[in-house]
């Protein structure tokens, strides 16, 4: 039995089955080998139970989307994405929204009014969607919009959701021109896994474009997985009907629950 302590990585790689045979045999002869491997296996189970793969993989994807993949879009804030212009990765805070209107991206976070005083957090155990708007008067802070509230082209809004008991979901918007925009997950090929727990803010704020009459935000949830592209395609098929009458909501199979919040556009 070797007296030199084998580095942790080699024990980890043994447990993963990634060591070449000769190295594996050397590791097997090391002091405390069996206890070290058993400890790793116990900790593996505990870690995955405490920090579930589905939840944390979604967080990692979201963080990646926010930090890297869409970084180039940050430099072109006027770019239109569907009906809305994506203006900022905002994983950290709704505060950013208020700051955007007059602070710009280069200056950092401006002092804001206490957000807790201005934001009513999503409450309850039902899935929910919320829309926040940066103060259009340019005095800082954010305002939570309710169904039927008014907004204008150029207003900056931030979306958030609360999954409650839903494991999967998408957030899309439909506007008065019948355009459908997917906001979450970031692309139609993604798994629509929701992050459980409290309110989750999407990593971007958006600037409302000049589509007339209304902007309807839909939070479509399910307890089982589904094909995001198929749902978006179905919504596009129904968009002209809803564009004609925004009091209606989309008609989707029973597995889905739909929460909607419609903003009226001031002309």
């Amino acid at each position: 039995m070797s007296t030199k302590r084998v580095p942790d990585l080699l024990i980890e790689q043994y447990a993963l089955g990634e060591l070449p045979p000769a190295t594996a045999r050397r590791v097997e002869r090391s002091e405390g080998f069996e206890q070290r491997v058993a400890k790793i296996r116990r900790d593996n189970e505990a870690t995955l139970a405490r920090y579930p793969a589905g939840v944390y993989a979604a967080r990692i994807r979201n963080q990646y989307e926010a930090e890297y993949r869409d970084r180039s879009r940050d430099r072109t804030p006027a770019r239109t994405v569907g009906t809305l212009a994506m203006v900022l990765p905002a994983a950290a805070a709704l505060l950013v929204v208020g700051f955007l209107l007059f602070g710009g991206l280069d200056v950092g976070f401006a002092p804001q009014a206490d957000p807790q005083a201005e934001i009513t957090r999503l409450k309850g155990v039902e899935p929910a969607i919320a829309v926040y708007r940066a103060d259009p008067r340019g005095v800082g802070g954010v305002q939570r919009l309710s169904d039927g509230d008014n907004a204008r082209a150029g207003d900056v809004v931030q979306l958030s959701y609360q999954a409650a008991d839903a494991r999967y979901g998408v957030i899309v918007s439909m506007d008065g021109r019948g355009a459908v925009t997917l906001h979450y997950p970031p692309d139609p090929g993604s798994v629509p896994q929701l992050i459980p727990g409290g309110e989750q803010t999407l990593p971007y704020a958006y600037r409302l474009d000049d589509a007339p009459r209304f902007e309807m935000f839909l939070f479509i949830t399910s307890r089982t997985g589904f094909d995001v592209a198929a749902v978006v395609s179905e919504l596009e098929r129904q968009a002209s009907r809803i564009s004609d009458d925004p009091e209606q909501t989309p008609d989707l199979p029973q597995q889905f629950e739909i929460r909607s919040l419609t903003i009226r556009k001031e002309e």
């Binding site: 993963l16 790793i40 900790d43």
Partner: peptide
């Protein structure tokens, strides 16, 4: 994540 996250976290 399932395979490597516990090792990375340790």
């Amino acid at each position: 994540y399932r395979k490597y996250a516990p090792m990375v976290l340790r």
